[in-house]
């Protein structure tokens, strides 16, 4: 309940701030109270709680293992980089 009202207040507050950059929205309160200054702050918190499943890296490793090795460009061989 409190969280929602905070979001509504924040949305109303930002109505006149169309020039505000995305970087200015900060999570405003403690994790325990779970109050957020804006929907973006809420989403940022949600993102931190959403790790990439480890099987993605495992699948990627398997896929990369089958990728052909790219030949080094001639200019890289000459320049040594």
């Amino acid at each position: 309940m409190k969280q929602n009202s905070r979001l509504q207040r924040d949305a109303a507050h930002t109505e006149g701030q169309s020039e505000t950059t995305a970087q200015t929205h900060q999570q405003s309160t403690t994790q325990g109270a779970a109050e957020f200054a804006s929907p973006e702050a809420l989403l940022r918190y949600d993102a931190t709680q959403t790790p990439v499943p480890p099987q993605v890296a495992e699948r990627l490793r398997a896929s990369l293992a089958t990728e052909p090795v790219k030949p080094t460009a001639w200019w890289r061989r000459i320049l040594g980089r």
Binding site: N4, Q8, A11, E15, P39
Partner: peptide
């Protein structure tokens, strides 16, 4: 982008469930 973001914030806040 600014216009859509403004409307998105408002719509999100209105629809976010209270419980």
């Amino acid at each position: 982008v600014r216009g859509k973001l403004h409307r998105a914030r408002k719509a999100f806040a209105q629809r976010f469930p209270k419980t």
